[in-house]
Deep mutational scan, measured.
Amino acid sequence: LVRYRTISKIPQITLNFVDLKGDPFLASPTSDREIIAPKIKERTHNVTEKVTQVLSLGADVLPEYKLQAPRIHRWTILHYSPFKAVWDWLILLLVIYTAVFTPYSAAFLLKETEEGPPATECGYACQPLAVVDLIVDIMFIVDILINFRTTYVNANEEVVSHPGRIAVHYFKGWFLIDMVAAIPFDLLIFGSGSEELIGLLKTARLLRLVRVARKLDRYSEYGAAVLFLLMCTFALIAHWLACIWYAIGNMEQPHMDSRIGWLHNLGDQIGKPYNSSGLGGPSIKDKYVTALYFTFSSLTSVGFGNVSPNTNSEKIFSICVMLIGSLMYASIFGNVSAIIQRLYSGTARYHTQMLRVREFIRFHQIPNPLRQRLEEYFQHAWSYTNGIDMNAVLKGFPECLQADICLHLNRSLLQHCKPFRGATKGCLRALAMKFKTTHAPPGDTLVHAGDLLTALYFISRGSIEILRGDVVVAILGKNDIFGEPLNLYARPGKSNGDVRALTYCDLHKIHR
């Protein structure tokens, strides 16, 4: 019993810090008490220290592992850092350059016999395009090294910054494609005289377009951006097909006994025919423009016929181009109408809503002055909100995010209106959640004399007048207030005048 009563005193000691020596009952000389009392004092002292730490809000209350900052290894790049964003855009520009100039170089340097010394005699450094290609190869190699040090988000939505895990993730992902696209074939085969082989191998750079397509997928929600990307894709495919079309004609031209190829026909049409040795002929500019003209006309199913396939190889390629053109029509131009419709969806919704308003007016036989006010209010409210119901949009977000959005939407009023000066951010967040926005066209009466005042109004834009009878008592403008002081009276009061809008007004109100 003594032991039980001794232990039962522990909660009292913990909360009230009572010393055991003052209790005459606990001072009985028993061996059990002498053993338990020192333990009680020690526990009391420890609990006292913990309570003191909690009340003082000291940093040592938290466990040590929670006080440590997340460790980022040296030379690790955050995937959302500004440097990584700028670097990704730079790589994107280099990939676009590669997609345009690599097929052009591979096709127009394929057994090209233009006048001038061969590239091997001039030297590697004197070729501007080769120098640019070398810079692109170096940048792609540097990009691989950067990807080995860039964080990523795993399946659990955690940012991984450990170098080993980053390397394994990159090896399992895009490393092989990036490595093949970054191989400097110019340096590996330079001086061997195989410019045709170098041009063909350099087309491996186009593998990076797969990554670019995935990154550009984030802009699919913007109709104008999608339309622009589709047109660029169409032009890029036409450019690639033009390079292939020229390569076919250029390879067949020296081996044909009869002059029936499209390059021969082009030379005869523009007065620059090929001679018996295969030299001469149109310039590279004429060849490229004509090839691009043929691919565009074939892809769009126009086909004027002034550039036509004559050999079997050219006919087979033309059939493939027609098939590609039909697929592009289905996948690209078939979506253009939907994209344009999405661009004008706001206008369509406006006309639909206006039609419903006019049908309501016609069905209920609203008189002319009231009908005009109804239409003007709808037009003004639509121009202010673009038909978007803010309350319906915010309803799907958590309250903390709703408060931040409301604070942002009402920031101008909260910053410049005098009653809100000096208020804490928590108070402003709470008030912003209570605001209701209303609009009024010129001549609209917001409050009639004798109406119950259940709200306090803040003028965000425009001006109003307060009338008693036919006498203008006051004219209020931006950041002015009218209405009933909230919670100042037990019952809502009545208006002693009319409140009429002089201009288009936007008002925020808080109800009782």
Results as ranks from 00 to 15, higher is better:
Ala181Leu: 01
Val210Trp: 15
Glu64Met: 04
Met433Thr: 09
Ser194Val: 15
Ser298Leu: 12
His264Phe: 04
Ile141Phe: 11
Leu394Ile: 08
Asn306Gly: 01
Val159Pro: 04
Arg421His: 08
Gly261Thr: 03
Asn306Trp: 01
Val226Asn: 09
Gly249Asp: 01
Ala238Glu: 01
Trp75Lys: 04
Pro128Ser: 05
Leu401Gln: 01
Asp178Thr: 01
Leu241Met: 04
Pro184Met: 01
Ala238Met: 04
Phe171Ala: 09
Cys427Arg: 01
Met328Cys: 13
Leu110His: 07
His364Gln: 03
Phe171Asn: 01
Lys285Ile: 09
Leu109Tyr: 07
Leu110Val: 14
Gly164Glu: 06
His79Met: 01
Ala181Gly: 14
Leu93Asn: 01
Ser313Phe: 04
Met390Arg: 07
Thr233Val: 12
Ser298Lys: 03
Ile237Tyr: 01
Leu229Lys: 01
Arg349Ala: 14
Pro117Lys: 10
Thr437Ile: 08
Lys287Met: 04
Pro70Trp: 01
Ser331Leu: 06
Phe190Gly: 14
Leu299Thr: 01
Asp217Thr: 06
Phe420Asp: 03
Val95Pro: 01
Trp245Asn: 01
Leu292Pro: 01
Gln127Asn: 06
Val180Tyr: 01
Leu207Lys: 01
Glu252Trp: 01
Gln269His: 01
Ala449Phe: 11
Cys406Ala: 14
Leu355Met: 12
Gln415Ser: 10
Leu431Cys: 01
Val321Thr: 02
Gln372Met: 13
Ser331Cys: 08
Glu115Cys: 07
Ile189Asn: 13
Met231Pro: 01
Val168Asp: 06
Thr311Val: 01
Ala423Ser: 03
Gly199Gln: 13
Glu112Asp: 11
Leu109His: 15
Glu158Trp: 01
Val95Glu: 01
Glu121Met: 06
Leu90Cys: 07
Thr76Pro: 01
Met231Thr: 04
Val132Phe: 12
Glu314His: 01
Phe228Met: 13
Leu129Arg: 05
Leu409Ala: 06
Val100Ser: 01
Asp186Pro: 15
Val86Ala: 07
Ile72Phe: 12
Gln269Tyr: 01
Arg342Asp: 04
Tyr329Leu: 15
Arg74Asp: 06
Gln68Glu: 06
Ser161Gly: 11
Asp137Val: 01
Arg259Glu: 06
Met390His: 04
Leu188Gly: 11
Ala338Val: 14
Val447His: 01
Ala338Cys: 07
Trp240Glu: 01
Phe420Glu: 01
Lys111Trp: 14
Ala181His: 03
Gly191Asn: 07
Asp143Gln: 01
Ile146His: 01
Ser276Leu: 04
Asn154Ala: 11
Tyr124Gln: 03
His73Cys: 05
Val142Ile: 15
Ser161Met: 08
Tyr219Ile: 11
Val393Ser: 03
